[in-house]
Every structure is written in structure tokens, then in C-alpha cells.
């Protein structure tokens, strides 16, 4: 079994603020972390490894310092780490990103057939949840989004049964491998890296693949290959709503006042 897990380096968004003048993210001094959803994807990949002896390859697209998130994946058990890094890939939107990732995984598939591609449900910086499905489309394999449980795997018949978390219900689906899955955070709790794991990860060689290897048409990747353009980033102004506070004996008053307003506007009924 060969599993490819995609990870992205993202800014720790709780620490990001938006420059009110330029409308861009202020990333100065903000630490980068592994996209939290991707940590669950990596954990799930390692569980396949623990259970079925799968070989796990982690892939990331990003600047050279993104190798840190790959090393983190290696520290908990990923076997191989590949960083897709080229100036030509820069400025990519989700379409151009999935083009590059999709081709890279296709190349990996030629070396050793890929059974499962794992992605986080979405990233915390872009929040689009489009790259996973984009990869599935380019590889022409089944996509299973919003997976919160792997129910079972039949290694002989090469099928997988999973549960999807939808708005008001769960959906259990069984499909033939290969598949692309995007995972919810509830699917698992990522393990903490051991020190021998970290020391191993420090020494591991992260392969860098540039467009020299992938040979993609420059017009389909990076900024030129990205139809999306960011016009403005801003935090929406709050027009309505207020915070009603009260401590000690005032608590009751605050709650009463709140309910009075809700009743007033017909939002709740007695």
C-alpha cells in the first residue's frame, strides 16, 4: 500500500493581522506551522502504515523553508518527503496548486502505485477546500471529502469504507481504491513526535522537485496559471450585534436584558 499525504505550511493565523492600509497579511515575525487539518491527514496516513504496513510519502508545495513541515511529518513516521519548490510555482491559486501537486503524485504513482491520497479538509489560511478535489480530478480518481472515520479497508478486494461528516447526517461509503480523501479534525488525534523520531527527521533528505523535473507548461502554473486574483483582504466590520456583560449580581440583569431584546425582536418566544 502506498499513501501520499499532502501538507501545507501556513502562518499561525491566530497571530496574523491585516495591514489596514495595504489590505495584506502582516506575516512579519509570525511563525509558520503545519496546516492543522493536514496534521490529521498525516496521522491517518501513519495509522495506515501501523496497521497495513503502508509506505507513506509526504508532499508539499511551497518555498524552501516549507521543508520544516515535511520534517515534522517524517518525525512521526512518514517514509519519504518531497518538496515541490520552484519560483515558477509561486503565487499559485488552488487551480495551479492542484495542477502541480496532481502531476507530482502522478509521477509518484508511476514509481509505485498510489492507493490513497490524503489531504486535510482545508487550509486555515485559504479556507477553500479545493486543492484536494483538484488533485483527484487531475489524477482521475475517486474523491471522498469530509471524512471523519475510516471504517474498514479490504486489502484483498482493494476497497475502503469511510464515513463522511455532512451537515446534518453521516454518510458511509465504500469505494474501490485508489481514492483521494480529505479529512476532518475529528478523524484522529495526531501523535506527539518522539525524540528519536525528531532526530531522524533532522537528518532525513527532503527531495526538492522543481519544474525542471515536472516540466509543466509555465502558463498553467504559478501566477500565470491562476485565474483567481485577490482584490482586497479585510476583516468584516461588525454592523450589528453587541456584547452584553455583567459580573456578580449584574449577571442576572444582563441575561434578563438580553432575553428582553430577543423577545422584543421576535427571535425567541415564550
Amino acid at each position: 500500500m502506498h499513501i501520499v499525504v499532502c501538507v501545507k505550511m501556513v502562518p499561525d493565523t491566530t497571530q496574523v493581522s491585516i495591514d489596514p492600509v495595504t489590505n495584506t497579511l502582516i506575516r512579519d515575525g509570525v511563525p509558520f506551522i503545519t496546516n492543522p487539518y493536514d496534521t490529521n491527514a498525516v496521522e491517518e496516513a501513519i495509522r495506515f502504515k501501523d496497521k497495513y504496513g503502508a509506505f507513506v510519502t509526504a508532499v508539499s508545495m511551497g518555498p524552501p523553508n516549507a521543508e520544516s513541515v515535511l520534517r515534522k511529518a517524517v518525525s512521526i513516521g512518514t517514509d519519504r518527503a518531497i518538496l515541490l519548490s520552484d519560483r515558477a510555482f509561486g503565487g499559485a491559486d488552488t487551480l495551479a496548486t492542484s495542477t502541480v501537486l496532481g502531476l507530482a503524485i502522478k509521477k509518484l504513482n508511476e514509481e509505485q502505485p498510489v492507493d490513497i491520497v490524503l489531504c486535510g479538509k482545508q487550509t486555515i489560511d485559504g479556507d477553500t477546500a479545493q486543492v484536494g478535489p483538484g488533485i483527484a480530478r487531475r489524477m482521475n480518481i475517486t474523491q471522498l471529502t469530509l471524512v471523519d472515520e475510516v471504517v474498514s479497508v479490504n486489502t484483498e478486494k482493494k476497497t475502503i469504507r469511510i464515513r463522511r461528516k455532512l451537515e446534518n447526517y453521516h454518510e458511509i461509503i465504500e469505494v474501490k481504491l485508489p481514492v483521494m480523501m480529505t479529512v476532518e479534525r475529528e478523524i484522529n488525534t495526531p501523535r506527539y513526535p518522539t525524540v528519536p523520531g525528531r532526530l531522524h527527521a533532522d537528518d532525513v533528505r527532503v527531495e526538492i522537485w522543481s519544474n525542471a523535473q515536472l516540466k509543466l507548461d509555465p502558463a498553467t502554473i504559478g501566477l500565470p496559471g491562476s485565474p483567481t486574483q485577490v482584490r482586497r483582504i479585510f476583516a468584516p466590520e461588525r454592523e450589528k450585534g453587541e456584547i452584553m456583560m455583567g459580573e456578580g449580581p449584574d449577571r442576572t440583569k444582563a441575561v434578563e436584558a438580553c432575553f428582553a431584546k430577543l423577545l422584543d425582536r421576535d427571535i425567541v418566544h415564550v
Binding site: D12, Q15, T189, Y192, T194, V195
Partner: peptide, 27 residues
């Protein structure tokens, strides 16, 4: 360090301390 076996509530502390250099994970 060898087993990564500890009471589960500590994982947040460990990650917060390492990533944000405080136990609560505040920016």
C-alpha cells in the same frame, strides 16, 4: 521522549509551549 505516552491534556501544553512559547497558546 521515547514513547510519546502522557496524559492527553498535556499535548496542548507541549505544542503551545513549543510553538508559541507559553502554556496557553496565546499569541
Amino acid at each position: 521522549m521515547e514513547k510519546a505516552e502522557f496524559p492527553e491534556e498535556l499535548i496542548a501544553l507541549f505544542e503551545n509551549s513549543e510553538q508559541r512559547s507559553n502554556p496557553w497558546g496565546i499569541a
